[in-house]
Amino acid sequence: MALLDVRNLSIDILTAQGKVRVIDKASLNILHGSIHCLIGESGSGKSLIAKAILGLHNENWIVTADRMFLGNIDLNKLSIRERRKIMGKDIAIIFQNPRSYLDPSKKIFEQMREVLPAVESSKPWFKNVSLRSPHRKTIKELLHKVGIQNDNAVVNSYPHQLSEGICQKVMIAMAIANNPRLLIADEPTTSMEAVTQSQIFRLLFKLNQLHNMTILLLSNNLGIVSNLSDHISLIYCGQTVESGTYKQITNSPMHPYTQAMIKTILKFDENVAHKSQLYTLPGGLPPANQLPIGCRLGPRCPKAQRTCVTNPEAVNYKGHIIRCHFPTLEEK
């Protein structure tokens, strides 16, 4: 059963030069209790999709979608106030730069206390007053759950007094405080050392396995997150170019962009010559207002032909969705 069903999501941004389409008919189908990875280079539109799902877009955004359901909730029909009610309870997000989203003027304890649910007083004269229950024990348990042992020092600190890894763990604790049905992790290990990255990914995997929490993981590194995922979608220049299960994507990739991403993964069991050149896809990601005609990968694609000047449609091959004129159809 799909917990999040997004079909043909498009985002247009109004700029001084006119309307620019940054997301073009992107689709996501995330099953309940799964880890779904959205992979793409920086600037491909992953964070824009996450913000559109959460309703965190600006007034100059024009967001349209044929379908955007969270369970049986139609997100397209919700007002801003109704969206806020499901934030934290049904859906939560971990941003990639935690210090940018934590309040620098408040200690961690105060910020974590704000996200915890309010309870009504049991006393008759306070029936209509919403009070905060004693939170210190709850906050301590949340910090221990995300791997923070020195909780007393952390809760009495300001964000700038903590490391990037600790701030990220605090943000994860705040995101899971209300046990959301869907957790969106937007590149949660950006600019972190390898040990901290491994800890955070193990934590997300544990949340999924022990609490059956559905996770949408956004990343630009297929090699790091692929082993965690049940399903993988690849996005390029605002379009989902390939989507399928972990085995379908890793064992039989059909799109040239997916094949290029897999080639960039380092395999230490192979003999690689010293100082040899690593594989990279030629060219770079074009700006949103200078996209090529037709297939957006065309100028960088090794299989590009004349037909690629027309925009390819998404085709479903037994659950393996591909957007390419010349996919690699191999049975393995």
Rank of each mutant, 00 (worst) to 15 (best):
Q96N: 11
F268P: 04
D12Y: 00
G88Q: 09
D186A: 02
A2G: 01
I39R: 00
F205Y: 15
H274L: 15
G165F: 01
I13V: 09
K206E: 10
Q96C: 13
I200S: 06
I35A: 00
A16T: 10
I73F: 02
K275M: 11
F201R: 07
Y236Q: 06
K106I: 03
A260R: 00
A173D: 04
N72R: 07
H320G: 05
R99W: 15
V315Y: 06
A304C: 12
C324Q: 02
T190Q: 09
M254V: 12
S198F: 14
N316D: 14
A314F: 00
L28K: 08
I265S: 04
A153D: 10
L38A: 07
I224K: 06
H144Y: 13
V195P: 03
S157L: 02
V195R: 09
H231T: 09
A52N: 03
L162P: 12
E141L: 07
I249V: 11
E330T: 15
L228K: 07
V119H: 13
L234E: 08
Y101P: 02
L228V: 08
E41M: 02
K169S: 05
H211D: 15
R136D: 15
K263W: 03
E187Q: 12
A273F: 01
L75P: 02
I13Y: 04
R296D: 04
I62K: 14
N58P: 05
A65D: 08
Q197K: 13
K303L: 10
K267V: 13
I80E: 14
V154H: 01
E41I: 02
N8P: 06
I53C: 04
A175H: 07
L48A: 03
R113L: 05
L203E: 02
F326K: 06
L182F: 07
H325G: 00
R83M: 11
L14D: 12
N251D: 14
I86R: 10
K263Y: 04
N227P: 09
I321Y: 01
L4V: 13
N72S: 12
S226A: 15
R113W: 04
K106V: 11
I166V: 13
A173K: 03
E331K: 13
S157E: 05
R136V: 15
K247C: 06
A175E: 11
F326G: 11
D24T: 10
D24Q: 10
T310V: 05
P292D: 10
G55I: 11
M171Y: 04
Q199N: 13
K85E: 03
A2N: 15
F95K: 03
V195N: 08
N221W: 07
